[in-house]
């Protein structure tokens, strides 16, 4: 049922710019503090099932238990294994910055050594031929002076051979 082409009516063009301030909460706050001050990636643990989360979780999804016991945190990575990935070859508007994505942009789902939950972050390698599932990767962490206590303190994950 093709519609008859009609005249374009008036439209109103608006860009919304809404400032937000998101709180990271106790667990992520501590995770980002460790990353910023010591350059160490931590996983927290569920006191009930013992799983190590990285990125950390405030509450265990399965047990509904708070995972705030700092003595149970363990350093994980910075090496890990690539579980899967995607590779953007077209640019998209980013909701975090309002800028266009710089392509090519490869993102990996990574299991850090010592963790039982996956982490999603950028890959250094952008040649699709060279990205292999289950390849070993390592987090590249910014020098201390440049770290701000956010996820971008990890620049990306580089491919390593062992």
């Amino acid at each position: 049922m093709k519609e008859k082409v009609q005249e374009e009516l008036i439209y109103i063009n608006k860009t919304m710019k809404i400032p937000y301030k998101w709180r990271t909460g106790e667990v992520w706050g501590e995770f980002f503090r460790e990353l910023k001050e010591n350059g160490i990636i931590y996983a927290n643990q569920c006191p009930t099932c013992g799983r190590a989360f990285c990125l950390p979780k405030d509450v265990c999804t399965r047990d509904h238990t708070r995972c705030t016991d700092r003595s149970k945190w363990i350093p994980v990575g910075p090496k890990g294994t690539l579980v899967t990935y995607f590779m953007a070859e077209q640019s998209f508007l980013l909701p975090t910055t309002g800028e266009m994505l710089k392509i090519p942009f490869a993102v990996g789902i990574i299991l850090l050594d010592g963790a039982t939950v996956i982490l999603q972050h950028q890959l250094e390698e952008t040649d699709e031929e060279k990205i292999k599932i289950f390849m070993r990767v390592e987090a590249v962490i910014k020098p201390k002076a440049e770290r701000k206590g956010n996820i971008f303190d990890i620049v990306h994950f580089k491919t390593i051979t062992e």
């Binding site: 992520w28 995607f86 953007a88 980013l94 975090t96 993102v107």
Partner: peptide, 12 residues
Amino acid sequence: PAVDRHFLVGAI
């Protein structure tokens, strides 16, 4: 917004 949003790139 703190961790995953930059690396998701939409549903795709």
